[in-house]
Design a protein around this nucleic acid. Structure first.
Lengths: 345, 345
DNA sequence: TAATTTTGTTTAATCGATTAAACAAATCAG
DNA sequence: CTGATTTGTTTAATCGATTAAACAAAATTA
């Protein structure tokens, strides 16, 4: 890689000091600099194809215009969708995004955050994994600006932008109840993650409010490490009883995707034999033969707000903002029976 | 944000020079430094929770351990899948990834590359968009290490890792011909992008080799800017003739996703009335009622090899490596008729 | 014991940009 | 015509780390 052009190269060629070049290129001291000199400097800068060394500038200004983004897995549509919004939003304010996937793994998450701090990011947007509360607390102690997205810790006072997961589950289950389903199951994760806990709580609460009793056999919490097998076994067991479920809520898009593949294999009739609702919107849900009723997370708002909160915090706003955005239930074929199907029940 | 701990803070506390601290923490001059002093320095470093200021180090060493990744759109599963592999591969070598989406837009792409250079990335992995050849040439002139993925310019001698798109199309069409389909259409992009051109060329070539004449009405090149409407119109027009198509190849996963939604709406029977093949593997293709036959791009290899080539180049390897990886056709329900369907044709 | 080598550490320059402060020259006010 | 301002530019310190070179003290060799 050939030597890059520095301020000094321009200064030498024009015959001025680097200070002057810096002032001109940054439009500082406007009016104080002779027009002819300023023009010449700009001209030479273009001619030599100069570009600022952002590293040097950052060292001096103590500002990198970089945001670190920690998601669970960038290849998950939820994460990548969010990443895209954040990218666009950050770009508007001249920030660049560094990203990393934690894989819901504490050690990875710690390493990522560490790397980002080492790189002097101005702030972080984090979808925190399980057991990472101490990492978040540590950020707080170091006064590093950050915003949590999707997940958060109710006991820690931090900026966050998340879904109102409790309400979201609640509305999904109420909808199923309204449609006449009586044995409603849920496949979720075995985790302490607050957003998932809230989804589970919403499910339980909705059943009780509806006068259907909550049967813990119908809420299966699978292991986050092996979704495919977990989902398949869960579905099998939910169906292999004398009173199989007639409706099912998937707690995440990953659970839904594997679940749908399995249900397709089992040749179950949706919604006749089994109604389905999922969290998140993905193309996969659209293409199932009975397009799924789903809980739509307002991804664009989440991304936008998270980025905005972060940049505000970076710029010195000390206020803490906690947002639980409302989800919207989008009703489609997977939960709505034809009239004749309905009569036959 | 409170003042961070620097080498100087450690040096002051221990009562030595910053140089010595640097040597110790970087394990330089091993054996030359008194064990007791070294231990004390390490101890204080931990105690103060010191972490290297990577910005300062980068300025001095002229190395950022950062890779810039330019994809078309990080929210596309192809891009995010690739990003994930690259992330993992880069991490193994202690590199961090900055990313950006070009949206197939020359100006955006230029801005991204510029930003990344300004930030002194050690190298770039780029899925170049249309008309960005000049940007690539410029990188070459500046001797900035880079590797192209997915797309490349046949006239420019650069490192790249791509699919053998011609062969991929060829095998897909041959498969359709073998299955007895005779009027095979393709929906592709109206673009000069080489990978797409190759896919189109493979389609045409396969038809001719098979003795089916190529009818340019059956290869519809839609505008990359408005995929949804383009695909819907294309499908409508391919079907609205006296001799409608009996099979269809989608040139990308985005085309396929929109195509499948439309075909579902039209209530077409796949593969009975229309057989389908798509490029790329996505969950959406799995969940269509007739899971799609698809051309599987070896994403992990692409990502791994691209990262490896880039890091080799960063480390000084001047050799140019150009890889066209073979695709694998995965045959599923969307192109294979039941016996009775076959007889009825 | 003097010269040499080894050990252990510091000094100081450097990376490239920013910016307060200093300075010289030109212009102005009285 | 002189002192004060304004204009235009330079000097030099700084950000935090790295590292060649210098240096002092201790150990070894002759």
């Amino acid at each position: 890689m050939q030597k890059r052009i520095s301020l000094k190269d321009i200064a030498d060629k024009v015959g001025v000091s680097t200070a002057l070049v810096s002032y001109v290129l940054n439009n500082k001291k406007e009016g104080r600099i002779k027009k002819s000199v300023a023009d010449r400097i700009k001209e030479v800068a273009v001619e030599l194809n100069y570009r600022t060394n952002q590293i040097a500038r950052s060292l001096k200004t103590n500002k990198t215009f970089t945001i670190g983004l920690v998601v669970a897995d960038i290849s998950n549509p939820f994460s990548s969708g969010l990443a895209r919004i954040i990218e666009d939003e950050a770009e508007k304010k001249n920030y660049t995004v560094i990203f990393g996937s934690s894989d819901e793994n504490v050690a990875r998450s710690e390493k990522l955050i560490d790397t980002f701090i080492t790189r002097q990011v101005d702030g972080l947007i984090i979808a925190p994994g399980e057991n990472s509360a101490s990492q978040i607390l540590s950020l707080q102690q170091q006064h590093i600006p950050f915003v949590l997205v999707d997940r958060y810790f109710p006991d820690i006072k931090t900026n966050y932008v998340a879904l109102d997961n409790y309400e979201a589950s609640l509305s999904a289950i109420h909808h199923l109840v309204d449609q006449g389903y009586k044995r409603i199951g849920m496949i979720s994760f075995n985790t302490s993650l607050f957003n998932i806990q809230e989804r589970n709580r919403g499910y339980i609460s909705a059943l009780e409010k509806s006068g259907l009793h909550f049967n813990s056999d119908l809420l299966i919490e699978i292991n986050i490490g092996d979704i495919k097998a977990g989902v398949e076994n869960a579905i099998d067991s939910l169906l292999a009883t004398s009173q199989p479920i007639d409706a099912l809520l998937f707690a995440t898009n990953a659970i839904a995707t594997h679940g749908l593949k399995h249900i397709y294999k089992l040749n179950l009739k949706v919604p006749g034999e089994l109604a389905l609702v999922s969290f998140d919107k993905t193309d996969a849900l659209d293409l199932f033969y009975a397009p799924l009723t789903y809980i739509n997370q307002p991804l664009p708002e989440m991304g936008r707000l998270a980025t905005k909160l972060l940049i505000d915090a970076i710029e010195g706003n000390e206020e803490i903002t906690q947002l639980n955005l409302p989800a919207k239930l989008v009703v489609r074929a997977s939960t709505v029976m034809d009239k004749d199907e309905r009569f036959s029940r």
